[in-house]
Write a protein that binds this DNA or RNA. Sequence first.
DNA 1: CCTCGAGTTTCGGTACGCCTAAATCCTACG
DNA 2: CGTAGGATTTAGGCGTACCGAAACTCGAGG
Lengths: 236, 236
Amino acid sequence: MKSQPSSSIEDYVKVIYSFTEWQDKPITSSQLAARLGVANSSVSEMVRKLKDQGLVDHRPYGAVRLTADGERLALTMVRRHRLLETFLVQELGYSWDEVHDEAEQLEHAVSDTFVERLAEKLGHPDRDPHGDPIPSPTGRVERPSALPLGDLDPGHEGRITRISDDDPEMLRYLARERIVLDTAVHVVRRKPFGGPLVVRIGAGNGAHEFDVPDSIASSLWVHSDSSHEGCTLERA
Amino acid sequence: MKSQPSSSIEDYVKVIYSFTEWQDKPITSSQLAARLGVANSSVSEMVRKLKDQGLVDHRPYGAVRLTADGERLALTMVRRHRLLETFLVQELGYSWDEVHDEAEQLEHAVSDTFVERLAEKLGHPDRDPHGDPIPSPTGRVERPSALPLGDLDPGHEGRITRISDDDPEMLRYLARERIVLDTAVHVVRRKPFGGPLVVRIGAGNGAHEFDVPDSIASSLWVHSDSSHEGCTLERA
DNA sequence: CCTCGAGTTTCGGTACGCCTAAATCCTACG
DNA sequence: CGTAGGATTTAGGCGTACCGAAACTCGAGG
Ligand SMILES: [Mn+2]
Ligand SMILES: [Mn+2]
Ligand SMILES: [Mn+2]
Ligand SMILES: [Mn+2]
């Protein structure tokens, strides 16, 4: 009866999980539809199917939440996706803006055996090329203590530990600006009236200042090495 | 209008191609159905679709033959499949009886970019773990001049250059008997009344005799190093 | 030359995953 | 409160890829 999940179902569950990975509001139908690129009505039907299979909790007109089973499946898929991205970069010379779409397909085609042998070969990495943590085979993940760059006060220093992989264009731009994983950042100031953030990138002679537009500021997560946790978290 | 092919269509075309790879009769509907594990009626429908897309020639009640376009697609898929099998063995430590099913899925999920980077990494191998030749990206293959062990006369010597990967069980058995690619074989005699073939496997101190049942004899291809091409090809 | 049965196609139907349009719900504002 | 407008679900359909059962073909053997 467990009828191993179709690739559509795998994607639904993965998107539901990802939505709550960096913030805790559960996802709504239309947000799910937008992320999956399907019509709202398609989501309604599929959510019913997910519920029948015990993967989500949902009541009509309410948000969608994963059950324990659903989360288990989601973590399996997230592990696959991130290990595959890591493989593509480390072993096949892909750049970090090219890996997402390829992994999005491959994640549905590989077996558990494949995934574990790949993890072995890669030396059991704990994060993917964008800094996203890779869950263990048993579904354990640690949520890195990092904050969006946009939420930090001037004076804050740290390192970039995660970069959203939503937009390949942005990833290419950041690579050109030498903004990559583990780069040091120092928040210099925020220009007034909602203007861009000014940060100092890197250290020593390679350092340079950079105006960070809001769209980028919310896509870069920073782990502070100076642990004076006086940062405002101003999300409504 | 080219509507890139579904994974079903990829499999149909690949099976049609494979059928004529080692023998030249075209495939019939029911043979196609048997190899794909679907009903005859499903094949009839799909063949119509393949014909509409210009991938096969077919007239009702006749055999199915690939067009130039169909063969091009088939060779692309065969290249993918065999490179993936090679990858699984060389890089992920799979044994040769484990790779077929995994490659059967992966071949539909990888991009052209992936395939070519993989070929690069593997050093552009020219055959897969079972000795099957890997077509070039442009669809060139060479048909190795090898003959089924069962068709050879006593006295014939050569090396095993291809082993059918249809039956994982048989592959495991052969590996246990130290019958692998490039192993030397010498046909000693055929036991009378359709009895098994007797062959000498290997050379030097590792050599041993082996009774080859018919099912195995037709799955091992031998390339003769002694080029006295006096072998009977008794296929009707 | 005719027929009969194996091989093949056609027919009606299912499951899945998607769509648009229409109906329905629910909340926030007036 | 009451309701309008946005969010959501339902209804009706489509394309793909399967299935079993029924109808059809055609060539080998009588
Ligand atoms: Mn996916
Ligand atoms: Mn990623
Ligand atoms: Mn396949
Ligand atoms: Mn093979």
